[in-house]
Amino acid sequence: MRYITMFILSLIFWLLLTFDLTVPNIIVGTVSSIICSLFFGRFFITNVYKLLQPRRYFWFVIYLFVFIWECIKANLDVAYRVLHPAMPIRPGIVKVKTTLKSDLAKMLLANSITMTPGTISVDIIDDNLYIHWIYIRSEDPEIYTGMITGAFEKYIKRIIE
């Protein structure tokens, strides 16, 4: 099942890349997708049936918009800190507990965190994310957990879990 998913995904990728619907191109694409799925299929997503539920795609689109908005905010934030003559930074590494369970969701969360205001994820150990923060606004774990993960966690939960 995983192999078939990988096959379909790589075929889509191939068609996007070449943008050519002639017969030889599709044959080459099919053959190379089969090879690709043989090599990499073993490592791919485990729960395939989730790909067939349309509402997940709907949440994914909403998530994209939220994410882009956060991204722009992040950049303006960094711009402010860089251009300010006094450079108001207060960096440190904080520990954040996440409620997400699956690996893919954790990965998506970590990557999202990397792109949001002033944070980069350093490591994941079990359920704990370690995050480097350029300006620590509060010392209280409850508050900063909400600040960092709150925007994304609920969407990711709806998309993946």
Binding site: I72, A74, N75, V78, A79, V82, L83, M87, T119, I120
Partner: peptide, 25 residues
């Protein structure tokens, strides 16, 4: 902006912060 960040900020971690976000976007 990212470029200014990579020059101005004081240590490696903060440089990475500025540079990655701005340059990727």
């Amino acid at each position: 902006l990212g470029c200014i960040g990579i020059i101005r900020l004081p240590d490696t971690y903060n440089r990475l912060q500025a540079a990655t976000k701005c340059v990727t976007l």
